[in-house]
Design a protein around this nucleic acid. Structure first.
Lengths: 267, 267
DNA sequence: GCATCATGGTTCGCACAGCGAAACACAACG
DNA sequence: CGTTGTGTTTCGCTGTGCGAACCATGATGC
């Protein structure tokens, strides 16, 4: 899950005089910290990024001075510091969708005993922009900021369906490159999603991402600063039969998105 | 609230051969987006940062390619993209305090009809790491990632009280430099907080940050990767009289922090 | 219509800052 | 003692970021 879709400069049209490498590398450093990695040493960071040691030194030094990393004297390791939160919050607080959609999401979540979320694309993942769990369902621990795969999850596929052909092809190409092995299966899933979307207005992922998770997804097009987003609605398989998913939950999610789009349209 | 405590290289000991300027600037660009600023143009960014135009161009170009910014063709402006969330989430998911403290916080919040939060320092602000509002209290709209001032808020002062003398002095110095005018008042507030903290175990901010907000704060020392944190507990002034604050809510918050520290100690 | 000015963005050479191979320093082992 | 794993320093070369100039627009004027 390293998700490099376009990371360092010397890709393709190398020599992009506009691309500043130091910045990209610094940010890539911050991304090395995944849930579960509390503390990382310079050496570990060098390993993960493939960058030379002195470079890492300089970058960590810089990030520490800026308050994005903290340094543990005793262990000689770095960990994320509060600064990184500053960035994300400005984004969240500016998204009107969240305020508008929240009540509808809570309603659906409570009614159908499922979790309902909004996701946006980042590289080859989806990150949750907003999420609410039903009171019953504590199983899935996914909150704002969580990442799930673009190709196999319901939100992910919905996002893909909402994009113009060209962009979708571009992304699918990268998905293929990342995992040639499973590509046939993954591709079939996305194509099925496209058919579902055109026929019913929502896509389905019944166990394609996680075996015991069933979910539906609906894209939302062209609102809130042109950002592509999608909604999903899912839960443990034993609570959400395929029939319920298609007959009941899917249509309701479509309706939800319509309401949100309408509310945003006149806002 | 621009919070520059140590931003660009040519501060103090100029010529820090370890400091990567490009990285610092890129991150500073991202920080230009505050709640309320949905979209910014290159020109506006140049104005805010004071950086030359071509530099801004290259940085925005880079950040866009990396998925931290999105570009609006029509308006020629940039806005934050989902990538920025990726960074913060890895931090939050690694903080054990959150999981441990959550239930205690909910209990206190519900019981006293106040909001309870955890904050960590970033530059001269406090950012919320976790927060829960009581069912009644919708007035304060502060969520994870929000920033409030270090010097005048209850959490902020608690954080200061929890630091070793040296660091506290260093920060207070910067606070003074930021706002010479109000310094006497601000300083008095912090010193009062120190006395309160030593006498009672908690600090008070009754209208010092926002006129109609009363709150208490308690620092938590030396757990969870040495990160300094503090808890607060507050609400609208008319609900939280000074007496209630000091007699009832403060002591309970102290107790809460003790429980959390204990739970973390043996974890 | 063509000037004029204002404003935002992009080129392009030059100087210098930041990169990285290699060398260095310092631990923690056995 | 080597040996293996760290993190930091050195220093020549290269790539990056600066500023002045160069384009775009688009709003005004008459």
């Amino acid at each position: 899950m390293d998700d490099d879709i376009q990371v360092f400069a010397d890709d393709e049209e190398s020599r992009d005089r506009q691309f500043v490498n130091a910045l990209a590398r610094g940010l890539e450093l911050l991304r090395c910290f995944r849930p579960g990695d509390t503390e990382l040493s310079n050496a570990e960071l060098a390993r993960r990024t493939g960058l030379p040691k002195p470079t890492i030194s300089r970058l960590t030094h810089t990030l520490t001075k800026l308050g994005y990393l903290g340094f543990s004297e005793s262990r000689g390791t770095y960990r994320l510091a509060a600064g990184v939160l500053a960035l994300g919050y400005a984004l969240l607080s500016n998204l009107d969708v969240r305020k508008v959609a929240r009540p509808y999401m809570e309603e659906l979540s409570e009614y159908a005993q499922v979790s309902v979320s909004i996701g946006a694309r980042d590289r080859l993942s989806v990150v949750y922009i907003e999420s609410c769990r039903s009171s019953a369902n504590v199983t899935l621990r996914l909150d704002v900021g969580s990442r799930i795969p673009l190709a196999t999850s319901a939100v992910g596929r919905a996002l893909l369906c909402g994009l113009p052909q060209g962009e979708r092809d571009y992304l699918m190409d990268h998905i293929r490159l990342r995992d040639e092995e499973n590509w046939p299966r993954v591709k079939a899933g996305i194509e099925q999603a496209l058919r579902d979307y055109h026929e019913r207005g929502f896509v389905v992922s019944a166990g394609d991402w996680q075996k015991d998770v069933h979910a539906v997804g609906v894209p939302m097009t062209g609102v809130d600063g042109e950002r592509a987003m999608a909604f999903n609605c899912g839960g443990p398989a034993f609570l959400l039969s395929r029939e319920r998913l298609i007959g009941e939950v899917g249509p309701r999610l479509v309706e939800l998105v319509h309401k949100v789009e309408a509310d945003l349209g006149r806002a």
